[in-house]
């Protein structure tokens, strides 16, 4: 076994830095999101850095007694979620990354449901529904990428020619996934920043201070994961990726502001109906015209 060379060390440092920065940039994005939402409602919104302030404040609150089991589940959740993002950033296997992210979210659901509060448990069961919508979609996306690139490794997908361009409908699936990650209408079943109802805040009911901050970071990683997937698909044409995120945002914010919260059934149907169909179409076209068979 040889010592890692300097280039390898540098690459490792870059990976760690990128993984650490990923959620922070999602925080900024959420800051913009809150500003835009406020503007839609004719309010003055918070500073763009607000999510960072909130996170720091939560993390430095004097801690309250917590459930040991829930706490360790939460830690594991964040570690796995960060791992999934790092895996993609390192050019690793997409399918594995999707599964790791799924596992991370299962841990979060367990953490939310580990406590006695019926609100937290209801919230956890709604998180589970969201997971049921997004995990199959993520897998379909990974498979479609693989169909184009001829390999499931993120590095190969990055090297391939812009799968989003060749698979037009895949953008729709990614949009649905982003809306789910951001908990936008109609996927705002389980959590929402401004809701005044315990039911909606359910999954984080029993979390406070540092632990709530951890849950938040995990959520940021989840969002970062989808954003990284979008970036991966639009390396050759960054504008397409940016356009996709912007379009998703526009649709989601308009939906948020003109519709009441959907029930979980309709969320399920919209998610699978739109996202799933689009993914399957993309998959088939990828098969027919892709670079290599699987």
């Amino acid at each position: 076994m040889s010592l890692p060379g300097l280039p390898n060390l540098l690459a490792l440092a870059a990976l760690v830095a990128a993984t650490a920065l990923a959620p922070l940039s999602v925080g900024l994005l959420l800051g913009v999101d809150r500003r835009v939402t406020a503007a839609m409602q004719l309010r003055a919104g918070p500073p763009i850095l607000q999510p960072w302030y909130d996170l720091t404040k939560l993390a430095t609150k004097t801690s309250l007694p917590v459930d040991r089991l829930a706490a360790s589940l939460l830690v594991a959740h964040v570690v796995l979620a960060a791992g999934a993002v790092a895996l993609v950033l390192a050019g690793g296997d997409l399918i594995a990354a999707v599964l790791v992210m799924g596992a991370a979210r299962v841990l979060f659901i367990l953490a939310a449901g580990a406590v006695e509060s019926p609100y937290a448990q209801l919230g956890a069961s709604r998180e589970l529904i969201l997971l049921l919508i997004s995990e199959p979609l993520l897998l379909l996306v990974a498979i479609a990428y693989g169909g184009v690139a001829g390999s499931f490794s993120a590095a190969a997908v990055a090297a391939a020619q812009a799968p989003v361009l060749t698979l037009p409908t895949l953008g729709l699936t990614l949009g649905v996934l982003l809306a789910i990650a951001l908990r936008k209408s109609p996927f705002d079943l389980a959590t929402s920043h401004h809701a005044h109802q315990e039911l909606v805040k359910g999954s984080t009911t029993e979390m406070a201070g540092f632990w709530l901050a951890l849950a938040e970071v995990g959520h940021w990683y989840e969002t970062a994961f989808v954003l990284v997937l979008i970036a991966l698909a639009s390396l050759a044409a960054p504008l397409v990726g940016i356009g996709l995120v912007a379009a998703t945002y526009t649709v989601a914010i308009v939906a948020d502001n003109t519709l009441p919260r959907a029930t979980w059934r309709s969320a399920l149907w919209i998610g699978w109906g739109i996202g799933g169909t689009a993914a399957v179409i993309a998959l088939v076209t990828g098969r027919l015209f892709g670079a290599g068979g699987l």
Partner: peptide, 16 residues
Amino acid sequence: AGDAIGFEALFQSCWR
């Protein structure tokens, strides 16, 4: 009521 059905924009505009 708008708030209770998760329609925050309605909440805000009614109060406006």
